[in-house]
Amino acid sequence: MEFLVASAIGVMTAGGIYLVLRLRTFPVILGVSLLTYAVNVFLFASGRLTVGAPPILRDGVETYTDPLPQALVLTAIVISFGMTAVVVMVGLGAYLHSDDDHVDDVPEGETAEEQP
């Protein structure tokens, strides 16, 4: 089980990094989303893995999983939606303005130098 989670984190991280390094906004956003999953699962796993012991208090139950990482990850998921939305909006605005969705634009000053 631990191997499955750890390797899933690794695969999602690798995929996220690869997509983040692409040249267009959309894959970069997808890459960031993948990285978000990886980070959230990573944080969640810092409470160690427990099957069938949700942190809902019950009479007579002694073992519970660690609730704190869950609470932290819960807000992280919601916040990451807000951030994704902002990034998508920024990317969309840039595309609509310039008809170009590259993320590797060279600053204006430098292009001016290159084109005398």
Binding site: E2, F3, V5, A6, S7, I9, G10, V11, T13, A14, G15, G16, I17, Y18, L21, A38, F42, A45
Partner: peptide
């Protein structure tokens, strides 16, 4: 680079 990052994340979690 992605592979290094993925391996590192895997190693750390594992």
């Amino acid at each position: 680079v992605a592979l290094i990052g993925g391996l590192a994340a895997f190693a750390l979690s594992w």
